[in-house]
């Protein structure tokens, strides 16, 4: 068991990270999904700051600040605007029974724990415990993309995967070089902006943001031609 405060804090934050990933899956309403997503962004920022403090790595403070601004504030706000302007139905529409999804999510967590365990044994970083959780969060984000009907929830799933990768980066290597970090951050921002543009375009073309509807629409088009 850890004997100083910083690793304990990182552990606690990792647990919270896992909780937010599960909470993202469990929500009924789109706005609360966004809230949890923003909370995940804040968590990331806090984790980065704590690790920066613990390892005396000043570059990580900048990462933390970027995570706070980008993932905690900007992206949720962008998505919130999309939802409001497109009048997306406020309910999350899952493809699968929610309890079943939760059970699968638990199994995925267990699986990632099982996979990561041998790696943890050889790692000496203070944050190694959180690697399994980062891995689990990646899988949970993917699960969210699979089991949700709306394009917008899928995008949130995608961004959650990105969040978990960032978390894994902090956990496994104490953060990436700052240049890479900034590059990725801008990539994500651009991706989010493009997604936003796409949403408008898609809605104009298909009158819906449901993935199945788009698929059906395309098939019908094929038939027509």
């Amino acid at each position: 068991m850890s004997d100083t405060l910083v690793p304990q804090l990182v552990d606690g934050l990792a647990a919270l990270m896992l909780l937010t990933s599960f909470a993202l899956l469990a929500q009924h309403r789109l706005l609360s999904v966004l809230n949890w997503f923003a909370a995940q962004g804040f968590l990331l920022a806090t984790t980065a700051a704590v690790v920066a403090y613990g390892t005396n790595n000043h570059e990580l403070y900048i990462s933390a600040l970027m995570a706070l601004l980008l993932k905690g504030l900007l992206l949720p706000w962008l998505l919130w605007r999309v939802i409001r302007q497109l009048h997306v139905h406020r309910e999350v529409e899952p493809l699968m029974n929610r309890t079943m999804t939760m059970l699968i999510a638990l199994a995925l967590t267990l699986f990632s724990f099982h996979i990561i365990q041998p790696i943890e044994k050889i790692s000496h970083l203070m944050t190694r415990d959180s690697m399994a959780i980062a891995m689990a969060c990646v899988l949970l984000g993917m699960l969210m993309m699979i089991t949700r009907r709306k394009a917008i929830t899928q995008v949130i799933g995608f961004l959650a995967v990105e969040n978990s990768l960032f978390f894994a980066a902090i956990g496994s290597t104490n953060g990436m070089p700052l240049v890479v970090e900034i590059g990725i951050a801008f990539d994500v921002l651009i991706a989010a902006l493009i997604f936003g543009l796409f949403f408008f375009q898609i809605r104009d073309t298909f009158d819906s943001l449901e993935v199945d509807a788009m698929h059906a629409h395309l098939i019908h088009k094929d038939d027509d031609e």
Partner: peptide, 24 residues
């Protein structure tokens, strides 16, 4: 759903016990 949520949280507790507190 509420009760299965409680179960999921408790199971997360168990998993995080193994992941974070035993693993070290």
């Amino acid at each position: 759903e509420y009760l299965s949520g409680a179960f999921v949280i408790a199971f997360l507790g168990l998993l995080s016990f193994y992941m974070l507190e035993v693993g070290a």
